[in-house]
């Protein structure tokens, strides 16, 4: 376990599995948010003319598999860290961990992870395994909450905690930045990798409704270094007073393809058959020469 390669264990996956299992019976309460995120992500499917027949829904919580079925995909597996959540997701249910994928190579031609990879400790490792589960020319589509998500909540909790307890502890997950994701896709061996940013507009009537949504999605604090003590009585009322209830969360979208010969790729250096200078109608200078 102590090899140099081991990823830092930021999230408590066992706790997360329990949170998701407990959330399963009321995940429908947060369906509007999960549905909106799934719509944004699956819009990308309409950008391609490729037809998909074997899909993996990773942690879709009932928002993804039905939409894939509606697009005519006949074989859909819904995987979740918690079996009760997988059972409600809409595809063939399976309990498994993104860090320990149980699929033979080339099992799927489409993998969709809507808001489900942000609490994976070893994201590079998970992406490599996902790429291997894809058949050549298969598509990987994922969305993650980006840096800045729940920032008002993070700041309000930090301020209230330092006032009531004189210190702060991590209460809101760390989120990735856009530029991290593109390089991660490339590192994992995906072809034509793209990472871009969308926005998910969120609004609540009351701070407690925000907390209820996080709980129904199984998204409450699963950081390993969280403070195990009961928070001071005044913490949440103080943090929630004046907490903005409208929030545009950055939604980071990753797309990547399992490599295949038919895909466009950069030409090999030196393989050009015409000179750039001819195309531009100018004189070519050697690298050492001064132009003009």
């Amino acid at each position: 376990m102590n090899s140099v390669e081991a990823a830092p264990e930021i999230f408590d996956r066992t706790l997360l599995a329990r949170r998701r299992a407990r959330a399963a019976p009321r995940v429908h309460e947060v369906a509007p948010i999960l549905d909106a995120a799934a719509e944004i992500l699956l819009d990308r499917l309409d950008d391609t003319t490729r037809r998909f027949t074997r899909a993996l829904d990773l942690g879709g919580r009932g928002a993804v598999a039905p939409r894939l079925a509606a697009r005519g995909i006949p074989f859909i597996v819904s995987m979740d860290l918690a079996a009760p959540m997988a059972a409600r997701a809409g595809g063939m249910p399976l309990a498994a961990d993104e860090e320990w994928l149980p699929f033979a190579p080339h099992s799927f031609d489409l993998i969709v992870a809507s808001l489900s990879l942000h609490m994976v400790n070893d994201l590079p490792g998970a992406l490599v395994q996902l790429r291997q589960a894809l058949a050549p020319d298969g598509l990987f589509l994922a969305s993650l909450p980006g840096l800045g998500t729940l920032q008002p909540l993070r700041e309000a909790l930090a301020a209230a905690e330092s006032e009531t307890r004189g210190g702060i502890s991590p209460r809101v997950s760390p989120f990735p930045e856009l530029r991290d994701l593109a390089s991660l896709l490339q590192r994992a061996g995906f072809a034509l990798p793209v990472a871009d940013q969308d926005r998910l507009s969120l609004e609540w009537r009351h701070p407690m409704a925000l907390v209820a949504d996080l709980r129904a999605a199984g998204e409450t604090n699963a950081i390993r270094a969280r403070d195990p003590r009961t928070p001071p009585r005044a913490l949440f009322p103080r943090a929630f007073a004046g907490l903005p209830l409208r929030h545009d969360a950055p939604l980071l979208v990753m797309t990547g393809w399992a490599p295949h010969d038919s895909q466009q790729k950069p030409a090999r250096p030196g393989s050009a058959t015409t000179r750039l200078a001819d195309a531009l109608g100018t004189t070519e200078h050697k690298a050492g020469d001064r132009a003009g």
Partner: peptide
């Protein structure tokens, strides 16, 4: 396998 769901978690 529980309730028809394969539980592919090493810790279980």
């Amino acid at each position: 396998v529980r309730d028809g769901i394969p539980i592919m978690l090493p810790d279980q």
